[in-house]
Design a protein around this nucleic acid. Structure first.
Lengths: 339, 339
DNA sequence: CACCCTAGAGTGAACGTTCACACCGTGCCG
DNA sequence: CGGCACGGTGTGAACGTTCACTCTAGGGTG
């Protein structure tokens, strides 16, 4: 048996076999619910398993089956509620299908995140879902093509070979926001980004820029680009509003940033939404209880998680290689008091 | 090489050995930075590794070394910011020491969580840290004593054999809160709990009850116990305040619950803190931006995470069995506008 | 010159499991 | 009654790695 730091050893399949007076293979068959085991034998084996408190070693199993029934999930920060919800959604789905989810923080310093994904591979996961916060598309493609397992990217709608991309339709989302703001009479729209997720930010920023220029044609300088060095939305928004006091609307990269902008407006004595309207992304619960409550683009994190899991599962089960597919998610604008 | 669903195979140590014209053992020595390898050979092996994109298989390695350099972490919900911060802290610490953290959701339905921890074991982790949301102490003891690896419990200060407990000093925290409320002239204190984490709730509830009875001696019915069926603090607080309109203070199990109570007061036209004072636990960032901002017991999630990691690491390195130790964390009351 | 030591490299076994195959006995069919 | 199918079980090999040991060549020492 296995000797471990606390002095206890875990029994192996051979220990069970000895107790039940059968061969390892018979125990293995019982574990796999194989039909050709005599009922009496099965009972003896099950008793031995119970007695010894035996649990199969998934690593040894994975080594020979080349399948660990484990998927990897990686994001920069699980406390971000959009990432967290997606993670929880995948976890639930995995559980339903007998899979296990190994979750890890995606680390910028670790080769922009590729190193983290590589580590997941060495851990033997059967597939990987991740948010591409820092990685270049070419890096992702290289990783996916050498990974030996299906790879799903969430949050960015680029078409990358060997990768399934699941993402919000940023163009549609930007259109929803800008249409709404323009209808509310807003014309000078500022955009508040966040350097934490440059790759996701980029698409969103570009989409908003396009939507703004196309809607507010020539009336006013259409967009104020801002990649703040400071992560906190409050400071970023304060800086932005001091530099551009004529702004009448601010779109935050996510709800947290937008809530920072809300505070900045309070600080500066600006009324929301009369002086400045504010919009966020994600639809986190806290956004409902700010004053005024936050207008936001709701992301269907659970739906995306389901789609991600199913993509991984079908690849693994069919053995079909991933071809590079983009699944766009339809955004929904939840209009509340801040606009 | 390894055949996988996307048709790509990952090279093994033997592939590297073949390319570099050495034996597997020599490659293994290069990987382990063994001194007795000729410089020329080392270079050849490193080139082969780079060429093939080889990464060692941690499962195979763990199988023979009986060490995976991996710790498991489990909590009910990573989106809870206290759990999330602790997780992030452990992840950072693990990374520093060359360890990998496998994170998982603790599932009530899975044998009250024990099943989840068992699965972590079958995955081959060298140690486990977890929040004991549903498990009975006896179950935890049984698990720990048969686990074969060090086990750290965070969030509950029970002395359990074979388990290191790291927890907030609930008595001290309750004293801080109640002293402060009494000094502010409050006498009828309601307590708002949350059925999601019954085991943590219990200690907190008991500590608050003791503190309240000892401070508000006989003047008024001292404590209103409430284990709401509804998880949302707003509903729970509304119910509580309708049933006990005489309450002049509410303590929430965590900041999220307390924020719900804040909303309930707004709903009912009660002024905070004049009519009802509100206190939470955890010190999450959103608590700073409510109106009024939330008074709260700050938990040092990162410090606890460090302590948990170090406990696991020293057990693994020294091979010393865990004896059952309780580490209490000193609470800090952050007084803001809600009291 | 015999001896031993050491640097550098390789070989078989083991970790805990499953896969492919072989084996044996029994019952049914022709 | 011979043959065959099949239920039930066991055995060797393999998965990818490291450990413990062995081997070889060369150099220093007495």
């Amino acid at each position: 048996m296995k000797r471990r730091p606390n002095g206890v050893s875990r029994p192996t399949i051979v220990d069970v076999a000895d107790v039940a007076n059968v061969s390892r293979q018979t125990v293995s068959r019982v574990l796999a619910d194989h039909p050709r085991v005599a009922p009496a034998t099965r009972l003896r084996v099950e008793a031995a398993i119970e007695d010894l408190g035996y649990r199969p070693n998934r690593m040894a199993r994975a080594l020979v089956t080349r399948t660990s029934l484990t998927f990897g999930f990686a994001a920069v920060d699980m406390r971000d509620l959009h990432f967290g919800d997606t993670c929880a959604g995948m976890q639930a789905e995995a559980r339903k299908h007998g899979y296990y989810l190994v979750v890890t923080k995606l680390d910028f310093e670790d080769d922009r995140g590729v190193g983290t994904l590589e580590t997941l591979l060495t851990l033997g996961v059967d597939g990987i879902a991740f948010f591409p916060s820092f990685m270049e598309d070419t890096e992702i493609e290289l990783f996916a093509s050498t990974s030996g397992c299906p790879v799903v990217m969430i949050g960015r709608g680029s078409k990358i070979p060997h990768v399934v991309s699941i993402a919000l339709d940023e163009t549609a989302a930007a259109d929803l926001i800008v249409d709404h703001l323009v209808q509310s009479g807003k014309r000078r729209i500022g955009v508040l980004m966040n350097e934490m997720y440059p790759k996701i930010v980029h698409d969103r920023f570009v989409a908003l820029g396009r939507a703004i220029t196309s809607r507010t044609d020539g009336v006013e300088p259409p967009v104020e680009a801002d990649y703040p060095q400071i992560s906190h939305g409050r400071d970023a928004a304060t800086t932005l509003l001091q530099r551009r006091p004529d702004l009448d609307a601010i779109v935050g990269f996510n709800d947290t940033m937008a809530m920072g902008a809300l505070l900045a407006c309070h600080d500066l004595g600006l009324r929301v939404p009369e002086d400045v309207a504010i919009v966020g992304y994600d639809g986190i619960p806290f956004g409902a209880i700010t004053s005024p409550p936050l207008t936001t683009i709701v992301q269907d994190s659970i739906g995306m998680a389901d789609a991600a899991f199913k993509a991984l599962l079908s690849c693994v089960q069919d053995g079909t290689p991933v071809e590079g597919e983009v699944v766009l998610w339809r955004p929904e604008l939840l209009i509340r008091g801040s606009t």
